[in-house]
């Protein structure tokens, strides 16, 4: 923080440590043309501009569509939308860390590693192309666990229940979960499921087979945390038991290995392990009370 610039980081090419940053830099990208094809590394060179993030790097690469070696290539495919870390779309592995590409600022990445920036797709989801992965399983977990408030209907029925400030402040961080999947990519218990379409299989048949596979495997920290969000809401609590039962089925909370990677990588700093701890206790209580017929 230099006082000469009103306390803002210097726009000139200097990292915090004072090492000059290069005028251009290399980006090494793990590409894959389609799901059933082999992946390969490709190197691009980009000119450094002020206020760059990994998204603007990928935009430049798309416009250039040429590798360091001068070979003309198809633009790298990637997923993004809001570019301000609230939509959850642009998750990828940047210099070995799973994170949102939009908040990955080039000057900081280069300050850590001036040689290059390395981009890879998420590891636990099937690659669609290049940095685009299929995260349908993540949303399926939310369906399976019924993470919503089951209101009677959408006609006017007055306000919702009163909520204390404490309860709101506890719920709010959980409701900031943007389904980005960082917690899943970092989780040792969450294993990739990649199914190939069978010869002659219809859309519906494939979707059914895929759902069966999803539903027996670990739902992951994000979904457990959503269960706790809704179970602690005054209206959601009325159906808390049902969600806990679902959370005790195959792929449920018992699959958590307590590695705590999830909470370390969450870009929203959601207290995921707190949710998991609470869900663990709640499911145990639920199981015992059911055992004794309540």
């Amino acid at each position: 923080m230099q006082s000469t610039t009103n306390g803002h980081a210097s726009p000139a090419g200097h990292a915090a440590a004072g090492t000059p940053l290069p005028d251009e830099f290399d980006v090494r990208i793990l590409r894959q043309d389609a799901p059933d094809e082999a992946s390969y590394w490709e190197r691009h060179r980009v000119r450094r501009e002020p206020d760059m993030n990994v998204i603007s790097v990928l935009q430049r690469i798309a416009a250039q569509a040429k590798t360091v070696e001068g070979e003309r290539v198809a633009p790298v495919a990637w997923d993004c939308n809001c570019l301000e870390e609230v939509c959850g779309a642009c998750t990828m592995v940047v210099n070995g860390h799973v994170r949102q590409a939009c908040t990955a600022l080039v000057d900081r990445l280069l300050a850590d590693n001036p040689d290059e920036i390395e981009l890879r797709p998420m590891e636990k989801f099937p690659v669609v192309r290049d940095l685009v992965v299929n995260r349908r399983r993540l949303f399926r977990a939310l369906e399976k666990l019924k993470t919503w408030i089951p209101v009677d209907g959408y006609y006017d029925a007055g306000p919702g229940p009163r909520v204390s400030q404490e309860a709101q402040q506890e719920a709010y961080p959980l409701s900031e979960c943007m389904s980005c999947g960082c917690c899943l990519d970092a989780c040792p218990q969450y294993q990739k499921i990649e199914l190939a379409r069978r010869e002659g299989e219809t859309d519906a048949e494939f979707a059914h087979r895929e759902q069966e596979a999803f539903d027996t495997r670990f739902v992951g920290a994000h979904a457990i945390s959503q269960v706790m969000l809704f179970n602690r809401h005054p209206t959601g609590a009325l159906s808390a038991g049902e969600r806990l039962d679902l959370l005790m089925e195959a792929g449920g909370i018992q699959d958590c290995g307590n590695a705590q990677n999830c909470v370390a990588v969450c870009p929203k700093k959601i207290p995921l392990t707190t949710s998991i701890g609470r869900a663990g206790r709640a499911t145990v209580v639920r199981a015992i009370s059911k055992w004794f017929g309540r």
């Binding site: 919503w148 408030i149 209101v151 959408y154 006017d156 029925a157 007055g158 306000p159 919702g160 009163r162 909520v163 204390s164 400030q165 309860a167 709101q168 719920a171 709010y172 409701s175 809704f230 809401h233 209206t235 959601g236």
Partner: peptide, 14 residues
């Protein structure tokens, strides 16, 4: 606003 409140939106509270 009432409906969104019922749907569980975490509105700030007094």
């Amino acid at each position: 606003i009432d409906l969104m409140d019922r749907l569980g939106v975490t509105f700030n509270r007094t």
